[in-house]
Design a protein around this nucleic acid. Structure first.
Lengths: 347, 347
DNA sequence: TTGTAGGCGTTATCAG
DNA sequence: CTGATAACGCCTACAA
C-alpha cells in the first residue's frame, strides 16, 4: 500500500483534502463529528504529513541548528554530551529536531547560518561559547533570526539583562562565591584562586565571585589570584606558587586546574581533614578522584533554552512568555577524597 | 531583492529553468558555453537550490540520523564529543547534515526511524552501541534502510565480516593484547584483567585479547580474570583482590576501572618504575593522571562510517567502493605517572 | 463548516 | 542539447 497523503485520505473519506489539513492544523474549525472520522482515518492509515511539503509551503523546517565547537581539551566533553542530550530531548518534545554543523571560526559559523537559513530553512539556532564582541549574535540580531544562547552576552558596558536576545546562563560567580564561603567557614583565610587570563567573560565572572566572598570576610589578598591557561600541569604550577605564598586552599575556574592544584597540595603536606581544593564543572574526573566541584545545572539550562526559543518561534503573545534572560544558580558538589585509598586519592 | 529561484534565474537569462537545473545536477548535459553563462549567473545572484523543494521531488533530505545514547557515567562523554564532531565534519564535506534524536530504548529508536523516514525523508542512519541480538539492525536491514554502525554486529555464530550491513569498529582485542604484551616485556608475569561481565561484545573482545597474550606467553592464569560492573570503586576493589592473588599489573576494560585499580596499587606499595595499570579509551582522565590507556582512533572511525554510508547512498557501482567492514587498530598511549607530584599522581 | 484553486521550487519525462 | 509539461504534498486564501 502506498504511503497515505492528504489526497489519498481525502478521497477515501469523501472529504476535501482541506478538511483533513484543518483537522491537523486547526481542529477547532472542523465539526466534531467529521473531525473524529478523519482522526480515526489518520490513525488507521498511519498518515504523517510530509516535512518537505510542509517546509516548502511554510518555509519553516522545524529544525534548530547548533554548532559543534571544536574539541579542545576534551575534559569538558562530558558536559557537551549532557547538554546536547537535554537539548535534543527538549526540542523533540516540542516537535523540533536538532541539526548539527561544524565551523572552524565564528566567521565560518555566520556563513553556515546563511546557508542553513537559505537552503534548509532552519527555524533558529542555539549558540554556545558567547564572548566579548561576539559577531555571531550581532549578525543574528541584525538579520532578525531567532536564537538563544547558552551564555550571557559579555559586555563591559551593557547590562546582560537588557540584552535584545534570549539567553540562559549559569551564575558562575555565585558558585565560586559559595565555594569560597565554604572554605572560609572551614577556617581557611588564605584562599587562592586559579583562573584564566582576564578577558573571557565566564572566567572573569568566576574570579569575581571568589573576590566578593573574600572581601566580604575582610581577607581579600590580591597576590593569591593567579591567571593561567587551562590545563592540569598549569594548575599544579599555579597551586605551588600559591602554596609558597601561604595559601591553604584554592578555588579553581575548571576541574583541570583543580586537578593540578590538588596534586600540588597533596605532594606538599598531609591531606587536610577537609577538602581544600574546589573545581568547576563537576566533570567525571572530579567525581572519580573525589574532588569537590561547582556543578552547573546543564540539563535545566538546555531545557530553558529550548523553551524560550520555541516560544519565540511560536510567535505567541508576550503573555505567558518565559523569562528571556535566565541566570541559573550552580550547586556545590562536596566530596571527600576518595575513601578507597586510605589517606585519599591523591595522597 | 527577492531570493533567486530557478524561474527568476531562467527568466533573467532567457533559458528554461530546466537548463539551470541541469547545470547543477548534470553539467555534462549542457553545452559548455551556456553552462558557463548559467554558472556565472548563479554565483552572481547567490542562488541556492531550496532543500525543501528538492526533498519534495527526490524524497531525499541529505540528512543522516544519529541517536544520542542516554548519558551514563559521563566519563566517556568526551569520546562522544570527538566522535560526533568528526562525523559532522565528514558528513558536511559530502553535503550531508546530521540530525540528532534521542530514544530511551532500542524499541523507541526503531519507532523514531519510522518517523524520521516517513516525515523527514532521512537518507540513512549511524548506529552506535551495537550489541548481541540487536533489533535495530534487523529492522533496518529488513526495510532496506541505508545505515552503518560503529561497532561490529556481535554474534556467537556468524562472522562479522560476512555481515550484510557496513560497520566500522576498533579492534579492542588487539589493543588489550598489545597492552598485555607490553607488560610482559616489562617483566610482569602475573597480569590481571578487570573487565565487565561476559555478554557485552566489546567487553568480551577486550578480555580475549588479554587472554591470547598470556596464553602465547604460557602464563595464563584463570583466577586473574575479574568481571565487575564499570566504575572507579569497583575497579579498586577488583584490583585489591587481584593484588591479593599475586597480580603485579592489570589491564582494564575501561579508564574508570583502571583509575580504581591504579589507586589500589598505589596504596599497597611504592609506585613501580614502570606503569603497571593500563586503561581503555584514553579519556581525559587518563591523560590527567598519567595513566597509560588504549586509544581508539575515533575520528578515523567516524570518517570511515560516513564514507561507506555516503557511498551506499550515492548508489555508485561496487567498483571503487570503500571496504564495507573495517576493523581499525587502536594505539597504546603510554604514560608515566604524572611528574608533577613527585612519586606519582596517586602515590 | 466545507470545498476549490493556486502556488511553494524543484526534478523527471518526453518532445523537439 | 534544450524546452515544455507534469508532478511531489502541503497550506492559504477565498468562495460556496
Amino acid at each position: 500500500m502506498a504511503k497515505a497523503t492528504l489526497v489519498s485520505l481525502a478521497e477515501s473519506l469523501g472529504v476535501s483534502r482541506q478538511t483533513i489539513s484543518n483537522v491537523i492544523n486547526a481542529p477547532h474549525r472542523v465539526k466534531p463529528e467529521t473531525r473524529l472520522r478523519v482522526e480515526h482515518a489518520i490513525a488507521e492509515s498511519g498518515y504523517r504529513p510530509s516535512a518537505a511539503a510542509r517546509q516548502l509551503r511554510t518555509r519553516r523546517s522545524m529544525n534548530l541548528g547548533i554548532r559543534l565547537m571544536p574539541v579542545v581539551d576534551g575534559i569538558n566533553g562530558s558536559i557537551l554530551d549532557r547538554f546536547l542530550h537535554a537539548l535534543t530531548e527538549a526540542a523533540q518534545e516540542d516537535s523540533y529536531r536538532l541539526t548539527l554543523f561544524s565551523a572552524a571560526t565564528d566567521d565560518d559559523e555566520v556563513r553556515q547560518y546563511e546557508e542553513l537559513l537559505n537552503v534548509s530553512d532552519l527555524d533558529g539556532f542555539v549558540l554556545t561559547g558567547t564572548h566579548h564582541g561576539d559577531q555571531r549574535t550581532a549578525w543574528l540580531l541584525e538579520n532578525e533570526i531567532p536564537f538563544a544562547s547558552f551564555g550571557r552576552p559579555w559586555s563591559d558596558t551593557e547590562d546582560p539583562f537588557s540584552s535584545l536576545h534570549p539567553w540562559v546562563d549559569v551564575d558562575g560567580g555565585a558558585g565560586t562565591q559559595q565555594a569560597t564561603g565554604l572554605l572560609l567557614d572551614q577556617g581557611h583565610t588564605a584562599i587562592g584562586f586559579i583562573g584564566w587570563p582576564a578577558g573571557s567573560g565566564a572566567g572573569d565572572d568566576r574570579r569575581d565571585g571568589w573576590r566578593r566572598a573574600l572581601q566580604a570576610a575582610g581577607v581579600f589578598a590580591d597576590q593569591l589570584d593567579v591567571a593561567v591557561n587551562d590545563g592540569v600541569p598549569a594548575g599544579a604550577r599555579a597551586a605551588e606558587s600559591l602554596i609558597a605564598a601561604g595559601a591553604t586552599a584554592v578555588v579553581c575556574a575548571s576541574d583541570s586546574l583543580a586537578l593540578g592544584a590538588l596534586s600540588a597540595f597533596r605532594s606538599q603536606h598531609r591531606a587536610p581533614a577537609t577538602p581544600n581544593v574546589i573545581g568547576f564543572d563537576d566533570t567525571p574526573v572530579a567525581a572519580a578522584v573525589g574532588l569537590s566541584s561547582i556543578a552547573q545545572p546543564i540539563e535545566e539550562a538546555a531545557r530553558d533554552i529550548i523553551r524560550v526559543l520555541t516560544h519565540t518561534l511560536s510567535g505567541d503573545a508576550d503573555a505567558g512568555r518565559p523569562d528571556k534572560h535566565l541566570l541559573l544558580p550552580p550547586t556545590l558538589a562536596q566530596r571527600v577524597p576518595h575513601p578507597l585509598a586510605g589517606n585519599g586519592w591523591l595522597g
